Simulated assay, not measured.
Amino acid sequence: MNYTTIVLSLLFFLFGFIPKEVQAQMEPVTDINKKEEGYLLLDKGLQFRITDAINSMYNFDFEKAERGFNVLRYTYPEHPLPYFLMGLSQWWKIVIAIDNKSHDAAMLGYMDKAIEKAEVLIDTDPDNKEAAFFLAGAYGFQGRLYSERKNWTSATFASKNALKYLELSRGEEELSPELLLGDALYNYFSVWIRDNYPLLKPIMLLFPKGDQQLGLKQLEEVAKSSFYARIEAQYFLFRLYATEEKKPFKALEITKYLNSKYPNNPYFHRHFARQLYAVGRGREAKEVSLEILKRIDENWTGYEATSGRYAAFFIAQNYDRMRNYENSIHYYLRTIAFGDELGAQESGYYLFSALQLGKNYFRQGDKSKAKRYLDLVKEYSKRRHPANKEAREFLKKNKL
């Protein structure tokens, strides 16, 4: 978690190519004031039509999602919604491998376009709550990405704009479940950042202080009652329950639901395995993790080294507990390989895998390999790290 999460996070994703025969049957709405009564965001018919596309996106079936959302872009070319969704599609590609910057420019560009379209609406009608909603959301996601990249100046600017338009979007009762996510994240993380990032306190003085427990309750409400923001709220909830709130069983409940609803989403899949491991259900974590590795080997969309590192480690740990050292060595080696692919040699998964490899090779009588991996722990960790300390003690005790 970081400064990213003080900002708004809503809606869902992806556009692509529309076949000509589909275009021929479509009538674009160039005057968005002539659409159905009320805001497009509140159009129940639209919600019904795009539900399948949204679910497809979350299930990483991007081709199907793109077909559904592209119809919306063609039908409402002057509305910010299509461009907002296009930006969010890039965001989920980023989430699954957060260090991959290849989608950054596209995501920021789409959000800029959503901002441009929404500004036209709000210039025409300053009381347009829907336009303010999209401005808050687009700036919010930009701030979220900038903070992931540690571009604090841009993150602060975008976040201030998100909060400004969040205030302007209030007052429309039917929009409140969607807008509540922004309030919830702000309330929780404006306090969290002050407590955990002292160097950012001067920046946080630019913002009003929130209410952390209120923010948590608001997130729970959004997770129950929102249409567009429900899954995003659940995404934040399970992360908070797993880390800040120290409620691993609540986190497990949410990740189990998300994995069952979107079984092909690698992010939800790996966090379900992680929560099973966290609550001591190692055998189940192993079975879920074996499926993750299988999908990586079969090149499923979004299944990559980060998921593989988690999965291989959980499997290795289960075999260790069973004293099946031959199999545990195999999966610790896979954890190391995934860590090398990611350049994540200083992570706990990498260091404790190397530590266990050293111990297990020693058990098998291979002192040369044992020393190699114990030395690897020393190489990539600081002296005060628990894995480093344990490696040094093991080397000394066994005269390696």
Rank of each mutant, 00 (worst) to 15 (best):
Q317S: 11
R239E: 08
K369M: 13
A53P: 09
A233L: 10
D61M: 13
L88K: 14
D125T: 12
I292A: 00
N259Y: 12
T153L: 15
N151A: 15
I98T: 13
G358M: 05
I96S: 02
L276P: 02
A229R: 02
D104Y: 14
A305Y: 00
E21W: 08
N398W: 10
P202F: 04
Y277A: 05
F249D: 10
P28R: 03
N2P: 06
A53T: 14
E167S: 07
A273G: 13
D104Q: 10
N151I: 13
I18V: 15
S328N: 06
A155R: 05
I115M: 14
Y319K: 03
R149I: 10
S190Q: 04
F338M: 01
N196R: 11
N318P: 00
Y186G: 01
R281T: 00
L11N: 11
A229S: 15
E232N: 15
K389W: 02
S347T: 06
L252D: 04
R384Y: 09
R170N: 05
T5Q: 12
E27L: 09
Q356H: 12
Y188F: 15
A312P: 08
L108V: 15
N299C: 13
V7L: 11
Q345R: 09
F189L: 05
K160E: 14
R73W: 10
P77N: 04
Q142A: 09
K367M: 09
G182H: 07
N33H: 07
F238K: 04
L10D: 13
A312Q: 06
K35W: 00
W92E: 13
Q212G: 03
I203A: 01
E173Y: 04
N2H: 10
K150E: 14
E37W: 00
A242N: 08
H79C: 03
V222N: 04
Y165T: 08
R67P: 02
P82Q: 06
Y331I: 04
K224N: 08
K129R: 12
L10T: 14
A233I: 08
E393L: 15
R149W: 11
Y76F: 13
